[in-house]
Design a protein around this nucleic acid. Sequence first.
RNA 1: GGAGAGGUACCCAAGCAGGCUGAAGGGGACGGUUUGCUAAACCGUUAGUAGGGGAUAAACCCCUAGCGAGGGUUCGAAUCCCUCCCUCUCCGCCA
Length: 454
Amino acid sequence: MGMLDLRFVRERPDVVARALALKHVEADLPRLLALDAKRREVLAAVEERKAERNRASERVSVLRREIASLEKALAEATGTAAFAARERIQACEDEIAGLISTTRSLGSTIDEQESLLREIDAELASLLLTLPNVPHASVPEGADENDNVVVRSWGTPPSFDFQPKAHWDLGPALDILDFERASKIAGSRFVVNKGAGALLERALINFMLDLHTRRHGYREIFPPFMVNSATMTGTGQLPKFKDDMFHVENTDYWLIPTAEVPVTNLYRDEILAPGSLPVYHCAYSACFRAESGAAGKDTRGMIRVHQFNKVELVKFVPPETSYDELESLVHDAEEVLQLLNLPYRVVLLCTGDMSFASAKTYDLEVWLPGQNRYREISSCSNFEDFQARRANIRFRREPKSKPEFVHTLNGSGLAVGRTAAAIIENYQQADGSVVVPEVLRPYMGGMAYITPGA
RNA sequence: GGAGAGGUACCCAAGCAGGCUGAAGGGGACGGUUUGCUAAACCGUUAGUAGGGGAUAAACCCCUAGCGAGGGUUCGAAUCCCUCCCUCUCCGCCA
């Protein structure tokens, strides 16, 4: 989420209209443009009156001082001098009376115009939020996910000489995933990881964080898992996606749906100093999602749950490099899958399937033998300055130069639960045990196999 | 949770019996003088920002807002009133 530059909308309504069509978004662009014109008209009028009021107030102040000094002089003056002073004082007081009465009526006009302006601003702001980001020129046009483009594939889906099972069968059989008890203590769409299952989850988190911090140059952040409304608004979860999130009753706290929220908001309302870009952050967090619109979808297993773990990658970069940064971000996420030797493909989302805020998005999809299909495991996007404008994150190129909006990017690196599911399914053996990928063994006390009860 | 103190520019800090104070004074930073170099000393500069308008190749100029945030009183608010937020100290409670 985020917003476009009002000036850009004013100057290039054609581009905005095209983006609306490409992303299948409805918005009242003509009304927005009309309000914008109206706003500037009223603003000019109200500011002219304020300037007038300020001049009058200053004049009152000057006159008051003059009166004061005249009164002092009057004490010693006599005859014609005293008479002249009294005359002058009277003239000043008359002028003050006149100034006050005109300024008073000026004030009420200002009040009226300002409240009109507030109404216009409010509607304009909410209309501006209905405009999606403009897709980058390299994004294929298309209606829905069927028009997405597979950019590359890596690895080969394993062939089994037995019928491969889904992780929701394998996990409980190994007693490393417990959906039944999860549903007892919390509800549906939760999972309890046990023994080697818990260890696997923890190992994956550490493995991913180590990879991104030590080899890819990201700085680790461990953020709060609850944030306030201002933060949720900064990255656009509020007000639009209120129902997709969990709210803590009687507080202003919301459970984060992704670490992107706290991490992107770290620099909200800040101007980053020259030389501080690019900033690369990675963050583990639990993610909480209400999945309100997903009834009946992925009800089994840990593909779609209310709480899952994720390692998120977030970048703040100067505008000119953001598309190169997107490519490297995708590679950083891909490397996790390569090192784990999990087959996947990279999909470039078409205009109709990409999110509201994104200018360009690649999805990583991992092969899940149990479902015999690729499933999304990471989504990497360049938001350009769309998020930064809303969250007001800027930077300076030189100590004296004008602040500019940064470009923000983020991507999962990766969704941990889905990665665990992919490992369980891709590394399953005929006897129901699971081979532990080489790179994870150091993180699991050397464990090479997950066997029942491990 | 109880009690107190406080939020002013890059930092510290004065102003708070309303008016040439959008802000004294330090520090820092930047520029200059001096100097073989450095240091010191001296001089100068230093709200940044947002919005609107004007001029333009640009530099620039004008207006408005802005002293934690939002309201109110007033001709006029950093200054008076109300609400909220945050920070610090002490006590209590805890991991």
